[in-house]
Computed example of a mutant assay.
Amino acid sequence: MKHEQMKLKQIPRIQRISKSDFLRDYVQPQKPVVIEELIEDWPAYKKWNFDYIKELAGDKTVPLYDDRPISSKYKFNEAHAEMKMSEYIDHLKSGPTNYRIFLYHLMKEVPRLQKDFKFPDIGLRFLRQLPMLFFGGQNSSVFMHYDIDYANILHFHFQGKKQCILFPPSESKHLYKVPHALIAREDINFNDPDYEKFPALKKAEGYITELNHGDTLYMPEGYWHHMTYLTAGFSMSLRATPRTLTNFSKAVYNLIFMRYFDNYMRKLRGQKWIDYKNEQAIKRTHKKNDISL
């Protein structure tokens, strides 16, 4: 995938790192990094692949998401379909599919998986709730968004390849952020942006990398991320609390007000609310960037 016009730097890659160096070089300055050998001592490093998940969790019914735009029909993070994990893995193996598993507590459903990993001693205050798992088919992608809780995230990839595009919070003004939401406009293809329609994207400066089996991506607080599964694969995330009071306050606002307000307005105004927010994303972004179309 080509990004000649997007200002995307390669995320630095290191093999391993000490706790003090990780905190000094990446967490404190809030810069992303890929650590290639952080989890080589996990049983998951050798065991986790589609066949293993199918063997342990094949009978579980899993929620599936596709790439349809957010609409008034679905609530915040409401699934579009479901199937047995065994069927879904067969589906992933058979070829490209848009169906993804998003924010799934598979470890709660299959406690045996909890023995395959440990929380890294790397200086982050991890939230000890069970980690989330994410699965995707070849060519499926996750729209550009940032996380509701402003967590520091370690994202571990298993099986295949996954492309990650990141932008720091400072670039929000260029990304056509949808108001009262955590997403950029969903009709933007960040793998091949339409600069005539979305000219502010030319100013955005971000990062890109490809994750392989066993790679760990550190995503700092409030970072925008867009994921594309170059091949079918799956990932796991561990989350750590925001380190600044400002970001903690933003997380609290999002969790106890913003998402409920947005759901209320969807019920009240339906698709008109969605359309209004998408229009505002363009108007506000162009105003901040002194762009007139």
Rank of each mutant, 00 (worst) to 15 (best):
K283A: 08
D147K: 03
Y146R: 01
E82N: 10
S249N: 11
L106A: 08
D51W: 07
R185P: 02
D215F: 07
R68L: 07
I39A: 08
R266S: 04
K115C: 03
D215Y: 13
A181Q: 00
N289E: 08
K54P: 03
D21H: 13
N189R: 11
M227D: 10
A232D: 12
G123W: 05
A200N: 03
F50W: 09
D215C: 12
P193I: 05
H145G: 04
K46Y: 14
I208K: 07
E210Y: 06
E87M: 01
I11S: 02
K203F: 11
F50Y: 11
F198N: 04
A232C: 10
P169S: 02
G58D: 11
F119N: 09
V62N: 00
D192N: 15
H80W: 11
P199H: 06
R112P: 08
Y260T: 11
A151G: 06
P32S: 08
K277L: 08
K173V: 01
Q129W: 14
L217R: 05
D21E: 15
P43R: 11
H91S: 03
A57D: 03
R243H: 14
V142F: 14
Y253F: 15
W42T: 09
R16T: 15
S292N: 12
E279H: 09
Q30R: 10
I291H: 07
S18I: 13
G222Q: 00
L175Y: 01
E279P: 00
N289V: 06
S20F: 12
S20T: 15
M6R: 06
P12D: 10
